[in-house]
Design a protein around this nucleic acid. Structure first.
Length: 502
RNA sequence: GACCCCGUAGCUCAGGCGGUAGAGCAUUUGACUUUUAAUCAAAGGGUCGCGCGUUCGAGUCGCGCCGGGGUCACCA
């Protein structure tokens, strides 16, 4: 046993043995749960209490009030809490054993519903079964419902470290957080439904890859013993989905885990959930309309409103979203036209704007810095930033009319990037040049630059139709729609440093 | 990676001027057959994250380490 037992835990182990000695089956195989707590609370009718005269409820004990020869318990199931009334007269054989029940134990009750004289709908127990003993003391949370019906929680379980490490305890003790994860699930299933209705195909592509690509990031490295080769956990699914467009599917998407071996913070977890979608014969203008439709309809579906409060700001996801060309934004917020400027000129402008730049930064890096420092803060309401410099986007198609740019947009909300999309580059000659340029940057020491993937280039040579592609960070979308400001609060089991000496 | 803040009972937190460690809830015992943050009476429970140092004496001061949170950097 890794974790030491405290006095209270020891008592619980003792109680388990006492119950067993009393002839109680302490780990039974099933229980006939007939109704949920919520159903009973919503359907109890004072005129016809007989309708709920024989119910089976089950859940975890969340509060106990013993009054001698009668006791009140609250149990919580997935749907909520309901009060249980146990009376010695009605449980002659079992009542003594109720003293061995603790907060956290899972019990099943057979009995009838009634309303107490203080007005609470309650189950009067005819039979009580222990379903599983809780042998570890849970944080004790007390709550009160005030006259306005608001829940007031006392001594809430607040230790973030323990909440993330023992999410199961967090879910028991802070049931409200379930809503976040229920909403996460609804968001993802709505997106699936939205895409499926358009006739697009959900696919699964390799997570273990011999060559990683589709994004600029450092990978996790692993090894396949059977073939004695190095493998990488994918950093994106882009290149595989494009191969499927080459193969003749006209709309494919994947919702799955990506892995990036980089820093962790409020908006980055080493494994995160990404949505990518590729649709043949379309371009980024079409994709912008689709993205707007998807995001706004998802918000409406899960929140019943286009309005979202995020980090103290009221955000409207009602279409249409603002659309701005990247270099127009630079002009608008810095006063400078940065298009076509040399590295030296950009460096000087950054200096004048008080944006700190490393001496050896590339033009792209300088643009990125200025964007981060001067523009992002203005992109609170959803904004499509359109037409990026070519060097920033090695997989995007050259702009049809603007020299040096690609057909790309990113969607910003509350200053955060939510989506990234291109008219996909399908000229294999251009793609080869761009990947070879990446390889040069990589050779010069940038570990995050892309690797040349010959098979991907071969597939483009076989021929990929004009295609629009989209990526959305699901975790960040969930953060936006649930109002959470840390990615750890929208991932059930976020990455944590392992504990030592335990 | 840098900086700031935090780590005291199962939980939430006080104490910090260096002088034997506190509260509420939880636990145990007793009373109580419609209570609901139940109530009343009593009791037990701590390597004050870990280590080293300063000191007659460290939860408190210093240094290092571990873990967490935050800001920045890196990164989409």
């Amino acid at each position: 046993m890794a974790e030491q037992l405290n006095e209270q835990d020891l008592r619980r182990f003792e109680e388990l043995e006492l119950l067993e000695k009393a002839g109680i089956e302490v780990y039974p195989y099933s229980f006939n749960k007939t109704l949920s707590a919520k159903f009973i609370l919503e359907n109890y009718n004072d005129e016809k209490p007989d309708e709920l005269s024989n119910v089976g409820v089950a859940g975890r004990i969340s509060a106990i009030r013993r009054m001698g020869k009668a006791s009140f318990f609250h149990i919580a199931d997935e749907t909520g809490k309901i009060q249980i009334y146990m009376k010695k007269d009605d449980l002659p054989d079992f009542y003594e054993n109720t003293k061995l029940l603790d907060i956290g134990d899972i019990i099943g009750i057979e009995g009838f519903a009634f309303r107490t004289k203080t007005g609470e709908i309650t189950i009067h127990a005819r039979k009580v079964s222990l379903l599983a003993k809780c042998l570890r003391t849970l944080p004790v949370v007390k709550e009160e419902i005030d006259e306005q019906g608001n829940r007031i929680v006392y001594d809430a379980f607040a230790d973030k470290e323990l909440r993330y490490r023992r999410r199961y305890v967090d879910l028991i003790v802070n049931p409200d957080i379930k809503n976040t994860f229920v909403k996460r699930s609804k968001i993802i299933s709505y997106i699936r439904k939205f895409f499926d209705e358009k006739g697009w195909l959900e696919v699964d592509t390799p997570i273990l890859q011999t060559i990683y690509g589709g994004a600029t990031a450092r990978p996790f490295i692993t090894h396949l013993n059977a073939l004695d080769i190095t493998l990488y956990l994918r950093i994106a699914v882009e290149l595989y989905l494009k191969r499927l467009i080459v193969g003749g599917f006209e709309g494919v998407y994947e919702i799955g885990r990506n892995f990036r071996n980089e820093g962790m913070d409020r908006t980055h977890n080493p494994e995160f959930t990404m949505l990518e979608l590729y649709v043949a014969f379309k371009d980024y203008n079409w994709m912008m309309d689709l993205t707007e439709e998807l995001i706004s309809k998802t918000a409406l579906e899960v929140n019943g409103s286009y309005e979202v409060e995020y980090e103290g700001k009221l955000i409207s996801l009602k279409p249409p979203f603002r659309r701005e060309k990247m270099f127009d934004l630079f002009k608008q917020y810095t006063g400078y036209d940065l298009k076509g400027k040399s590295r030296e000129e950009l460096f000087e402008i950054a200096k004048k704007l008080n944006v700190e730049i490393d001496k050896d930064s590339s033009s792209m890096k300088i643009l990125d810095e200025i964007f981060g420092a001067k523009i992002e803060e203005h992109l609170v309401q959803p904004t499509f930033v359109i037409d990026y410099p070519l060097e920033m986007s090695p997989l995007a198609k050259k702009h049809r009319s603007e020299e040096g740019l690609v057909e790309r947009f990113e969607l910003f909300v509350s200053g955060n990037e939510l989506a990234n999309a291109f008219s996909e580059l399908n000229d294999p000659r251009d793609q080869r040049q761009r990947l070879e340029e990446q390889a040069r940057i990589r050779a010069a020491g940038d570990e995050e630059a892309m690797v040349v993937d010959e098979d991907f280039l071969y597939s483009l040579e076989v021929g990929m139709p004009p295609t629009a592609g989209l990526g959305i960070g699901i975790d960040r979308l969930v953060m936006l729609l649930t109002g959470e400001s840390s990615i750890r609060d929208v991932i059930l089991f976020p990455m944590m440093r392992p504990e030592k000496n335990k």
